[in-house]
Amino acid sequence: MVVRRMQEKRNWAWRFAEPIVRGALFATTTHEWVGGENIPASGGCIIVLNHVSHVDPLLAAHLVYDHGRLPHYLAKSGLFKNKGLAYFLTAAGQIPVERLSRNAAGAFDAAVAAVREGKCVVVYPEGTITRDPGGWPMTGKSGAARIALETGCPVIPVGQWGAQQLLAPYAKRPDFFPRKKVTMLVGEPIDLADLAAEPRSMPVIQRATDRIMAAVTALVEEVRGEQAPAERFDMRKAGVRETGNPNKPEHQTPREEPS
């Protein structure tokens, strides 16, 4: 495992959080980082990962931090409703996102600005914890692709597995013991150069999104030693709402009837 010394300037928020988060993760998990040298040592970039647990952001932050970068997340706006937490998250450079809202455009602009400032932005392109019954990556949202096409920055895919054993999707209590092994496999940058040269049409953005999800899925297959379903899970087709706990009845929507 390649570990780089932190080059970026850390403010009080990072100095406060880093030992707490690192200590908690070392107490509850073991980890294996593979391919971390693919994370750029400097300059704006996007890290894209599959999403299997609410603890994913902490583990991804551990990965990125171990390779000398400070992670900047597109975090759901609800986390910013608490004034104290909002103060901390803002100080740490996190970006609020109002999902399924027109205001999400502001998050896109902020993410683009962060990348252009040379920051490392972490994106979960599925937009939420996977609803796939086998835990595989779902169809992706367009945010990561749009940021990448707008900035031309490197897009680094990561396939990860194991966090769901520490905290299962939408579980209220974590399972601390025994310590859970988390593996993160970092792939080479995704080549989007041919698409960046084309107009920003929806078909082009969709092709970039599909390419991103294919790269992430291939890494998850390698980590798990299994083959993903031929067709990625689509929440809309399955009649599952895109926010909230899908296991609760109020979060089910009628399936689309064939026309």
Rank of each mutant, 00 (worst) to 15 (best):
E257W: 11
A114S: 13
E250I: 10
V115D: 12
C45L: 08
A196G: 14
T90I: 01
T28Y: 00
W12D: 07
P71Q: 11
P178N: 07
Q164C: 01
G106H: 10
D191G: 02
N247S: 13
G118M: 12
N82F: 06
A110T: 10
F177K: 10
P246C: 11
T30N: 12
G78T: 09
F176C: 00
V52E: 07
N247W: 13
K81F: 03
T28L: 05
I20A: 05
G118N: 13
K141D: 13
N38L: 07
V64D: 01
A41R: 08
A215Q: 01
E37R: 06
G36A: 10
W33C: 01
G127I: 03
R4D: 02
R232S: 13
I212F: 11
G140Y: 06
N82P: 11
F176A: 11
E18M: 04
E126I: 08
R211I: 08
S42Q: 15
D109C: 07
P174D: 00
F233M: 14
N247Q: 09
G118D: 14
G159H: 11
A60G: 12
T209W: 12
T217F: 07
D234C: 13
K172V: 00
I205F: 05
V155M: 02
R15E: 02
D234I: 08
P229R: 10
V21I: 15
T253W: 08
L195D: 03
P258N: 13
G152T: 04
P189L: 00
T243M: 07
G187W: 08
W161M: 07
F108Y: 09
E222R: 15
A163C: 14
T253A: 13
Q164M: 03
F108K: 03
D109G: 09
F108Q: 12
E226A: 14
T217E: 09
V55S: 01
R207W: 02
E150L: 09
A41C: 04
S142L: 06
G23Y: 04
A75H: 03
P96L: 01
P178K: 06
A105C: 01
M235N: 10
A60H: 05
E256K: 14
A228G: 07
K248P: 05
D56M: 09
L74R: 05
D66L: 02
G187E: 09
P125A: 05
A148P: 08
K83Y: 03
I95Q: 05
A17Q: 03
A113N: 14
A196L: 04
A214P: 08
L79Y: 09
P258I: 14
N11H: 01
K180E: 00
T253M: 15
N103D: 10
Y170Q: 00
L25Q: 10
N247Y: 15
E242R: 01
K76S: 01
T139V: 15
H62R: 13
V52C: 09
G162S: 11
G140S: 05
T139K: 15
A113D: 15
R4G: 08
K141A: 12
K141H: 13
P96K: 03
L100N: 10
T28S: 12
E8H: 06
V2C: 06
R4Q: 05
E126S: 00
G239P: 06
N245I: 08
G152D: 06
D56S: 03
